[in-house]
């Protein structure tokens, strides 16, 4: 949401226990309670991030498995999403449980807000010898995908840089890419990674 300071709101959403709060603390320097079990965050924490000339309000949303709320924390998550129609959504995934996290990610993408995806807990994925191809996910989803490890801060700076490149993705374009087709030009406005400004 753009307030009078033209500050963009970022909602951090994801399944419970994927490291949203740890990532939130890294991004904002805040001190949200972090634990190693799900359901730690049941209400809302706000923090602020200044990156270059951009100013962001970051909201740490309680974990949810889906947008069809089944418990109090999920109701809070859906309500926050509803009350911030102009927010950028940062979807946080556990890199060791990508498939489960994608369910919520696609539900969020379907709502049509600009999204960016943080592939968190990459250290655990490496330990478990799970390889996740962030570049391929970015290509298929059409939104920036950044690999992060919140506890060691790896990738967090890059994530902060990429927030302003968040993209609105299109489900039918995602479907055609999964079927090996290139979607219609109209469906994909710009490159997910560079926002149209030329890739690395």
């Amino acid at each position: 949401m753009h307030d009078h300071h033209d500050r963009l709101t970022i909602l951090m959403m994801g399944n419970p226990n994927v490291g949203k709060s740890a990532l939130f603390n890294r991004l904002t320097g805040a001190n949200a309670v972090v634990s190693n079990y799900p359901g730690t965050t049941v209400d809302v924490t706000k923090g602020y991030l200044r990156k270059d000339r951009h100013s962001y309000e970051i909201i740490d949303v309680p974990g949810a498995y889906s947008l069809e709320a089944r418990d109090a924390a999920e109701e809070v998550a859906v309500r926050i999403l509803d009350t911030h129609p102009d927010a950028v959504i940062m979807v946080v995934l556990d890199a060791t449980r990508v498939e489960r996290g994608l369910y919520l990610a696609l539900e969020v993408i379907e709502r049509g807000a600009p999204c960016i995806l943080a592939l968190n807990m990459m250290d655990v994925a490496q330990d478990k010898q799970i390889a996740v191809d962030a570049a391929e996910m970015q290509r298929v989803l059409g939104i920036p995908v950044v690999a992060t490890t919140a506890i060691s801060a790896e990738g967090v700076k890059h994530l902060a840089d990429m927030i302003r490149k968040a993209q609105v993705a299109d489900l039918s374009a995602i479907r055609s890419r999964l079927n090996g087709q290139e979607p219609d030009q109209g469906a994909v406005a710009r490159c997910a990674g560079c926002g149209g400004g030329g890739c690395r």
């Binding site: 889906s66 069809e68 489960r100």
Partner: peptide
């Protein structure tokens, strides 16, 4: 379905 699908 929804309830279980979102849990994997």
């Amino acid at each position: 379905r929804h309830e279980l699908n979102c849990l994997g």
